[in-house]
């Protein structure tokens, strides 16, 4: 007879490094390939990557760089920009003031473009909703897709990502911290 079994605890994530720099680089490569595949030759010239500040910005740049390598046209000049969503948040009244980040819409706008929004973590989905609201004021893309490095669940809105780096089942108490070289000096994803 064995002793009474303890209930099975889900594997504790806290304090663990989920992705290191090699893993992040592989994910960027894979998503770049997926974007190329889904856009196809027809829509690739209309591709526009829009990062959501802060860390969506560098991710969008990395994706663009890799896509240019994979399609073997380093001078393809994929349109890159950023959309700050602070002024579109629906929780401004319940939270403290947030400083604004830059919004840069590439020359030529987004009308008729194949837009991919890029962010580091997909959580409640409210950031993405705000980004969609912001985009609506800027123009009318042909299609809007979403690429995220980490999807940690706990959606509060009917929103899903088209390209996911890693699905990370977290508890709401945990924090997912994404660090990128361009901003934080190192590439890693950790759960706190």
């Amino acid at each position: 007879m064995r002793a009474a079994q303890k209930p099975v605890q889900p594997e504790a994530l806290s304090g663990r490094t989920i992705l290191d720099s090699t893993a992040i680089a592989r994910i960027i490569d894979r998503i770049a390939h997926e974007i190329i595949e889904r856009a196809g030759d027809e829509h690739l010239p209309a591709l526009t990557l829009l990062g959501i500040p802060t860390r969506g910005g560098p991710l969008a740049h990395r994706l663009a760089r890799r896509i240019e390598v994979f399609i073997e046209r380093p001078d393809a000049g994929i349109a890159i920009g950023s959309v700050d969503i602070t002024l579109y948040r629906d929780d401004l009244r319940s939270r403290g003031l947030r400083p604004l980040a830059p919004t840069v819409i590439p020359d030529g706008g987004i009308d008729g473009r194949h837009v991919v929004l890029v962010d580091d973590v997909l959580y409640s989905g409210r950031t993405v909703r705000a980004a969609l609201d912001a985009l609506r004021e800027v123009g009318r893309p042909r299609v809007v897709q979403l690429a995220v490095l980490v999807d940690r669940g706990h959606r509060e809105l009917p929103i899903r990502a088209d390209y996911v780096g890693k699905n990370l089942p977290t508890s709401a108490r945990e924090q997912v911290r994404v660090r990128l070289t361009e901003i934080d000096g190192t590439d890693e994803v950790v759960v706190l």
């Binding site: 700050d84 830059p102 919004t103 004021e137 800027v138």
Partner: peptide, 10 residues
């Protein structure tokens, strides 16, 4: 400045 760039050309 951020508001200016966010609204530029819109």
């Amino acid at each position: 400045e951020q508001i200016d760039t966010a609204l530029a050309g819109r």
